[in-house]
């Protein structure tokens, strides 16, 4: 029996060692496959990227790609600009002050409601993370309790899907634009608040709320399973620099894969970036966020970075139904990689 166990252990160790070496060689091969030539390496292409939110583990893949020199290996010189979203981001993209920006899928569709102003070069979020929460102690325990209540929505980012939810369910709520703080909800200045599962929701848990204290609506459960942020550039930029756009996406994906497999190191870096930026941060929160991001970014390895046609079509359908989208937008026009 003991001998049998020893043989099993040896076999296990051999399989483990082989798998590690295979993984390593695959990773190296992956980089090599996308690595530009030696000449290109010396002249790195400068890319200015503006994330949609303040530094946090939501962008851990990008931080790790910069930190580990993955962008360098792809011949890119990526710099992070101030967080921007919506109209401001669009104007900076169009004026050439930044090259790449984050938009939520619904926000990007609506940005293109008249003409194609931005194109998707990579879909990082594959899942909806938006939740609506209310306090059960304030009598909110069903969707109908939202009626005639104040709903806090982010003023800086898209809330098209939240609005679609309100309209779809025929609710009468007072939308209150808010900034990043959840104090308005804690202090009962609003009754319901828009939160991201990976961020504000956990802030509420860290403020002493328990899951059972809250009435939670996951928009995905109400036919609004629309993924959130992706990378967008202007059509012109994409036409001029298709290889760099592809390299940026690939390097970012590699950054995410690195982050997921080196969680402690990644959290250390995220916390450092946040402390340097004077942003409140704690390890438990960022760990939670990175765990969530793993599910959001990589439900399966095959889906990572790709915008799926069904997600796009569902978003367009919702925008037609609940927002002011009048024209038809083709998948190929929105997502140039689909055309190839």
């Amino acid at each position: 029996m003991r001998r049998f166990l020893a043989i099993l252990v040896y076999l296990g160790m051999i399989i483990f060692l082989i798998s590690i070496s295979t993984c390593k060689s695959q990773e190296t091969k992956g980089y090599e496959r996308h690595l530009p030539s030696a000449d290109q390496k010396t002249e790195r292409f400068e890319l200015r990227f503006s994330p949609k939110w303040y530094p946090q583990a939501q962008f851990a893949g990008i931080y790790m790609a910069i930190e580990k020199g993955i962008y360098d290996q792809y011949g890119l010189d990526v710099s992070l600009k101030d967080p921007l979203s919506g109209e401001v981001a669009l104007s900076l993209l169009e004026s050439g002050q930044i090259d790449i920006a984050n938009f939520d899928l619904s926000q990007a569709v609506m940005t293109n409601c008249d003409s194609t102003r931005i194109v998707n070069i990579g879909q990082i979020s594959q899942k909806n993370s938006v939740l609506l929460v209310g306090k059960r102690s304030r009598g909110i325990s069903s969707i109908s309790d939202f009626n005639n209540k104040k709903l806090g929505i982010w003023r800086r980012t898209s809330h098209i899907v939240t609005e679609a939810f309100i309209k779809k369910n025929g609710l009468n709520v007072q939308m209150i634009p808010i900034d990043w703080s959840v104090q308005v909800f804690i202090q009962d200045a609003v009754d319901v608040i828009n939160v991201m599962r990976f961020n504000e929701y956990y802030q509420l848990l860290q403020a002493g709320f328990r899951e059972e204290d809250l009435f939670i609506v996951d928009l995905s459960d109400y036919g609004l399973e629309i993924p959130n942020e992706g990378f967008y550039v202007t059509p012109q930029f994409f036409q001029e620099h298709p290889e760099e756009c592809r390299a940026f996406l690939q390097a970012t994906i590699d950054g995410w894969l690195y982050a997921f497999s080196h969680q402690e190191e990644t959290i250390d870096l995220v916390l450092k970036i946040m402390h340097d930026a004077n942003i409140r941060a704690n390890r438990a929160h960022q760990n939670w966020m990175l765990d969530n991001m793993k599910e959001i970014v990589m439900p399966s390895v095959a889906e990572i970075g790709i915008l799926k046609r069904k997600d796009f079509e569902k978003t367009v359908e919702i925008c037609h139904k609940y927002s002011n989208l009048k024209r038809e937008i083709s998948f190929e026009e929105f997502y140039p990689y689909a055309a190839k």
Binding site: Q183, I186, L205, Q206, A207, G208, H275, R280, A281, N282, R283, A284, H285, N287, W288
Partner: peptide, 24 residues
């Protein structure tokens, strides 16, 4: 909200709450 607003360890101040420390 349980956030530490004063504590001898300045690294904790405004970053950690008693709940986040409990989780961490």
């Amino acid at each position: 909200t349980g956030t530490l607003v004063a504590h001898p360890d300045q690294r904790l101040v405004m970053n950690q709450s008693l709940f986040s420390l409990s989780q961490e």
